[in-house]
């Protein structure tokens, strides 16, 4: 365990070990920096300073109001299309072995993809100007 050959061959879970190390390093860096800035900086809090910034005018209401539905729609569409894109990856990697048959199947898949795409376009899901 933890030998060069084991770690370098990209098939074992241990090849992810350096990533864990890096994660620890990154966490450490971020944590230390955050603490440092916390202790180093001055602390002179006033209520004006703690108010949220609204270009100098009085703060009005809560900012957390629902935003335009378009953004949600984009997020939802992303989820759907992203998952379809993910399907291309295993295909792309094995694309040469699958040959023309695989290509035809993929064409069908792309056709469905484009069908959905065309549908949302026509439905105006991506129309941002009102």
């Amino acid at each position: 365990m933890f030998t060069d050959t084991e770690l370098l061959s990209a098939t074992t879970p241990f090849s992810y070990f350096p990533i864990v190390l890096q994660l620890i390093a990154a966490l450490g860096f971020v944590g230390i920096t955050m603490l440092a800035t916390h202790f180093l900086g001055p602390k002179r809090k006033t209520s004006d300073k703690l108010a949220t910034f609204e270009s100098g005018i009085e703060q009005k209401g809560n900012a957390r109001q629902p935003v335009a539905i378009k953004y949600f729609l984009t997020a939802i569409l992303f989820v759907l299309f992203d998952v379809e894109v993910i399907f291309f990856y295993p295909y792309a990697v094995n694309f040469k072995e699958l040959g023309w048959d695989g290509f035809m199947a993929m064409l069908l898949f792309v056709a469905f993809f484009m069908g959905g795409f065309f549908y949302i376009l026509k439905k105006g899901a991506l129309k941002w100007e009102d």
Partner: peptide
């Protein structure tokens, strides 16, 4: 590093 750390009240 030496700037004041402000976390808005709300």
């Amino acid at each position: 590093f030496f700037k004041e750390e402000i976390i808005p009240g709300s």
